[in-house]
Computed example of a mutant assay.
Amino acid sequence: MTPRRVVPLLLAAFLLIGTAGQAQAAGYRYWSFWDRDGGTWVYATQGPSMARPSDGDLQGFRFAVSENSGDAAQPRGTADFASICAKTPAEDGTKRVALVLDFGTAPDAPSGETPPAPRTACAQVSPDATTADALAAVAGPLRYNTNALLCAIAGYPKSGCGEQVSQEQETRDTPSASAQKNASDDGGPSLGLIAGISVIAALAAAGAWQARRRRNATR
C-alpha cells in the first residue's frame, strides 16, 4: 500500500471518529410552553411564572426532547377554548384560562417512566393570576428547580429537569444502544472511536508490511 493511498484512508478514519462524537449531541428534555394564536401554536416569549393570560386565552405545555425552541415539539390535538371551558361558566372577578397538557411520547420519557395521556383543563383564577397560578389550580403538583424552571406538571416526570439527552439515550431501548450508553457512562471510549482507532492500526500495519516486502525484494 503506497503512501498516496494510505493518507486518504487515514483522513477518512479521523472523519469517522469526529462524526461519531458529533452524533451523540441531541437536545434537552423539558416542558415547553406555548400560546395559541388563532389556529397556530406559538412558542411563549415568557415563562409561565411571568406570563399573565387574559380571560379566554388558550395555552399549552408539551414534554419532549428538543434542541431549541425552533424545533420544539408542539402540544398535540385540536382543542380550543370554547370546548375546554364549556362546562366552566364565567364568574365576576375571575378569568378562565384553557390549558392543553401534552405529556409527550414514550421515546421522550425519562428512563423507567411512562407519560400520562394528554389532557385539557379549564382554570378559573383571579384576574391577576399568572399561567403558573392557573396551572397549579388544575394540574398540581408542580415542580420547579432553583432557577424557577418548570420541571414537572401533575408530578410528571418524577425526577430530572431540563437535562441534556444524547442520541444514544434516546434510542436506549435497543441492546446495542444500551451497550454504547453504558460504555460512555463508565468513561470508556465510544464505539466510533474504537472503530476509527482499529482502522488506523490496520492501515499502519498494512503499510509496514508493504515496506518490508519492498526492502526484501531489493536485497
Rank of each mutant, 00 (worst) to 15 (best):
M1E: 05
T2A: 05
T2F: 00
R5S: 06
V6M: 03
V7Y: 04
P8I: 03
L16T: 14
I17S: 09
A20R: 09
G21D: 00
Q22W: 14
Q22M: 09
Q24F: 02
A25I: 07
A25D: 11
G27T: 13
R29I: 03
R29G: 08
Y30G: 08
W31F: 10
W31N: 12
W31H: 15
S32W: 01
W34D: 10
G39N: 15
G39F: 12
T40K: 01
T40S: 08
W41F: 15
V42K: 07
V42P: 00
Y43K: 04
Y43C: 00
A44T: 02
A44G: 07
P48Y: 12
S49L: 08
S49F: 05
L58R: 13
Q59A: 12
F61Q: 04
F61Y: 14
E67V: 03
E67S: 10
G70L: 12
D71K: 06
Q74N: 01
R76Q: 13
G77D: 03
F81W: 10
F81H: 10
K87P: 04
T88E: 10
T88G: 02
P89L: 07
A90E: 12
A90L: 03
K95H: 02
R96K: 06
A98Q: 13
L99A: 02
D102Y: 04
F103V: 00
T105H: 06
S111C: 01
S111Y: 11
G112W: 10
E113S: 01
T114C: 00
P116D: 09
P118W: 12
P118L: 09
R119N: 08
Q124V: 04
S126E: 14
S126K: 14
P127I: 01
P127D: 08
D128C: 02
A132D: 13
D133S: 15
L135N: 06
A136C: 06
A137C: 07
G140N: 05
P141F: 05
R143F: 02
Y144D: 04
Y144L: 01
N147M: 02
A148L: 05
A148F: 04
L150Q: 08
C151V: 06
A152C: 07
I153H: 11
Y156G: 00
P157A: 05
C161Y: 08
E163N: 11
E163A: 10
V165K: 11
V165P: 10
E168Q: 05
R172Q: 14
D173H: 03
D173T: 07
P175G: 00
S176R: 14
A177S: 11
S178I: 00
A179F: 09
A179I: 13
Q180V: 06
D185C: 01
L191W: 08
L191M: 00
L191R: 15
L191V: 06
L193M: 15
A195N: 09
G196M: 09
S198K: 06
S198C: 06
A201Y: 07
A202M: 00
A202T: 14
L203A: 11
A206K: 05
A206M: 14
A211S: 13
A211E: 12
R212D: 01
N216I: 07
